[in-house]
């Protein structure tokens, strides 16, 4: 089973538009949206939910005001400034609470509850291109690393059960916890960048992260015609690091038009952008030695 994850470092380079189009041309594949914080793949693939599950992760502290003696130890010991002073008894700000249990352990009155934290939902769904596993983290929650791990586990099990040889995942932006969870142990990373200073800077960082976790990677330059010199710099960077250039896509309002039509690039512009996505997929499949490679 191969697991391909689409990443970028910088947000908004076109990960999701590319993933949706690849989901169409790479069939059969289990489709997975690992950007659990701001998931957008569902907007293009219109999944029909088959199962909905609540996602709980970690715990959070809650002070019982009736038992609090206002000794102030919790506030002193909390390293996340999560204890907010108040008239009757302090309260815990869930936005700041890291779930470390220090206040619960050290409260001399035993006045702090330790409750499982409900952080979001995850789904098994059906799309026009096959099965999809996705989620929605509740706003302002953390711990998306575990939700990402859980989605990957679900996708792997589904792929095993249905004997599907491939998992295709839309990854989160950045290079932190959720990206690390998306990347480690994957077969291949497709990195989508753009010929801008930010695109290039963040490409270097995500490539370093792929190297750190020993995941082979290839690069797609989106909007390549925005700046010829930047696109050349990126090509040179890739050559210097022995990274495959998998393909490129032009700066084209059709990408937005496809999104507005809730279609993939391959559905919306089968001859133009769609054909170019097809070539990118051939390059990926060839690198992984997949049977889909022409």
């Amino acid at each position: 089973m191969d697991e391909i994850v689409i990443l970028s470092g910088k947000g908004g380079t076109g990960k999701t538009s590319l993933t949706a189009a690849l989901a169409q041309v790479a069939q059969p594949a289990v489709i997975c949206d690992l950007d659990v914080d701001a998931p957008d793949l569902h907007l293009l693939l219109a999944p029909q939910r088959l199962e909905t599950h609540v996602f709980q992760s970690g715990h959070e502290a809650a002070i019982r005001p009736e038992d609090c003696t206002q000794c102030g130890i919790c506030a002193q010991m909390c390293r996340y400034d999560a204890v907010i002073p108040a008239q009757a008894a302090p309260t815990i700000d869930p936005l700041h609470c890291e779930g470390c249990k220090v206040c619960v352990t050290f409260c001399p009155a035993g006045a702090i509850d330790w409750r499982p934290r409900t952080c979001g939902e995850w789904y098994h769904s059906r799309t026009r291109f096959g099965r999809m596993v996705h989620a929605q983290l509740y706003p302002a929650q953390e711990n998306s690393g575990r939700l990402v791990a859980l989605l990957r586990q679900q996708a792997q099990e589904l792929a095993r059960q249905q004997r599907i040889p491939l998992i295709l995942s839309d990854g989160p932006p950045g290079i932190g916890c959720p990206v690390i969870s998306s990347l480690s142990g994957a077969s291949f990373a497709v990195i989508v960048t753009e010929p801008t200073p930010s695109g290039r800077h963040d490409l270097a960082r995500i490539v370093d992260l792929c190297a750190h976790f020993k995941v082979p990677a290839g690069v797609v330059v989106n909007k390549y015609d925005l700046s010829a010199p930047r696109a050349e710099e990126i090509a040179a960077d890739c050559a210097a690091r022995g990274l495959a250039l998998l393909g490129r896509l032009p700066y084209d309002p059709a990408v937005t038009a496809a999104m507005v039509a809730r279609q993939t690039l391959t559905e919306f512009a089968p001859g133009g952008l769609g054909e170019q996505v097809g070539r990118i997929w051939q390059a990926v499949a060839a690198r992984l030695g997949l049977p889909q490679a022409a």
Partner: peptide, 29 residues
């Protein structure tokens, strides 16, 4: 970007939050 911990951490001390978006389905969601 995003709406989880790091994003909330970045805006929590501000007086005003400016949200930059684009008029697309992804932007609106």
């Amino acid at each position: 970007p995003g709406v989880s911990c790091p994003a909330v951490n970045a805006v929590m001390d501000a007086d005003v939050i400016v949200l930059v978006t684009e008029p697309t389905p992804f932007g609106a969601f």
